[in-house]
């Protein structure tokens, strides 16, 4: 089920990236980033209700805990993803203001403004 959700998110991301609209491009990036986070998360195996909190010394350790490593990775990824989105949004805004277009097919020349 979760694998299918990941697939759906990827599908949506790719589809949006292939649109000509700049705004949809950003939406596509968000979807791709979410999908990738989820992929890393679920590929580590899922444990319900057992966060990776170790007991204080002396207390007894009970059962299998969730894997903390992918969580740490994903946490970093979420934050970085946000940074990217914020930056592209600003770029997008500026670009639209400068050129008046948001059609990616018009974005062909790097030197022309």
């Amino acid at each position: 089920m979760l694998s299918i959700i990941t697939g759906v998110l990827y599908t949506a991301g790719v589809y949006l990236l292939l649109r000509r609209s700049l705004v949809k491009l950003i939406l596509g990036i968000i979807f791709l980033s979410n999908a990738t986070n989820l992929l890393i998360f679920i590929s580590a195996g899922m444990t319900e209700g057992k966060p990776a909190f170790v007991a204080k010394e002396g207390a007894e350790q009970t059962g299998q805990m969730a894997d903390p490593l992918p969580q740490a990775l994903v946490l970093t990824a979420i934050v970085i993803g946000f940074g990217i989105v914020a930056f592209t949004l600003a770029l997008n805004y500026k670009y639209h203001k400068q050129t008046g277009t948001y059609d990616l097919d018009q974005v062909k020349e790097t030197d022309k403004v």
Partner: peptide, 11 residues
Amino acid sequence: IALLVGGFMTG
């Protein structure tokens, strides 16, 4: 194209 990529990712 998107479905192809998404399907691959599910797999």
